[in-house]
């Protein structure tokens, strides 16, 4: 085939730019990405666009069905619960508590856990070994159980839940980053870099970090989903956010008695959780695949 390129050199994208290019080919992934951005925006500006204030109770509209059902009203688009609280507003406010809380927690855990993991991974001998076994111990306890244990010491509450989830996520990140850095460190191109006289910081910046992006992406996805699941589960068990707060899990535990009377109060908050986690999983998996392909 004739080459119409006037210039001698082909433009070659950097691996990450190439990964982004590959990701854009993935239609479902792009839809999910836009949905994720939508949820993020909703989380930030939620309080301004919610139709009712957070603690607004309308006594004249108890247990209204969603607007598309026969007895529903358009004022309460998703219906109301047993105290006359508008479900749509509650779910929008809940996005801040559930998704926003999980997002911040995971971000903090990512930063702090990665720093510890990188320091551990770059070092060797006693220091690394102690860290390794300590993390193994912590990771042998499932994250939710760890969170429950921490809650049992701190006492129930929304802030304590976030703290517990943060502490439970920390070993996950540290361990994964530690592993990735450690594995990368023993590869030949790093040894070549070291023989060239590169300082550890330079090896980290140019040799290791670009090659473990995939670890960061997959761990962040996992952490984000497990953070949302843990926060909602703790809320559901009554150990997390307490009721005036419309945290999605807490909302669900409240509606246990309404299963028969008002099924929409059960299905809708749960659907919010399911869709959020689904979107995160799709975006994360798509990004991971694109990065893996972009590396080749």
């Amino acid at each position: 085939m004739a080459n119409h390129n006037v210039f001698r050199e082909d433009h070659i994208r950097s691996p990450l730019a190439h990964s982004w290019f590959l990701y854009q080919q993935n239609t479902i992934g792009m839809v999910a990405l836009w949905a994720l951005i939508f949820i993020l925006i909703l989380t930030v500006i939620g309080p301004w666009i919610a139709p009712y204030p957070m603690d607004h109770k309308d006594v004249s509209a108890l247990l209204k069905a969603p607007s598309w059902v026969e007895h529903g009203e358009v004022h309460f688009f998703l219906g109301t619960d047993d105290l006359g609280r508008d479900l749509l507003s509650q779910i929008i406010y809940g996005a801040q508590l559930t998704f926003g809380g999980a997002f911040l927690t995971v971000f903090l855990a990512l930063v702090i856990g990665s720093v510890i993991g990188i320091i551990g991974g770059m070092s060797s001998g006693m220091q690394a070994s102690v860290l390794h076994h300590f993390l193994d111990t912590l990771l042998s306890i499932p994250s939710l159980l760890l969170a429950i244990i921490i809650i049992s010491v701190l006492g129930p509450g929304y802030f304590n839940t976030l703290l517990a989830v943060f502490l439970a996520l920390l070993p996950l990140f540290t361990r994964a980053v530690y592993r990735a850095v450690h594995d990368e460190l023993n590869k030949e191109y790093i040894i070549a870099l070291r023989l060239d006289g590169a300082t550890p910081l330079r090896i980290l910046r140019y040799g290791i970090l670009p090659n473990i992006v995939e670890t960061f992406v997959s761990q962040t996805t996992r952490a984000l989903t497990s953070a949302i699941l843990d926060i909602t589960a703790l809320g559901f068990l009554g150990l997390g956010a307490q009721r005036p707060l419309p945290e999605w899990g807490t909302m669900l535990s409240d509606t246990m008695e309404l299963v028969f009377l008002a099924p929409w109060t059960v299905t809708l908050p749960g659907l919010a959780i399911l869709i959020t986690i689904l979107i995160i999983n799709i975006v994360g998996e798509g990004l991971r695949q694109a990065i893996l392909k972009g590396m080749d």
Partner: peptide, 8 residues
């Protein structure tokens, strides 16, 4: 299955 919260 991965994404659904168990209690829901």
């Amino acid at each position: 299955g991965v994404s659904v919260p168990a209690f829901w």
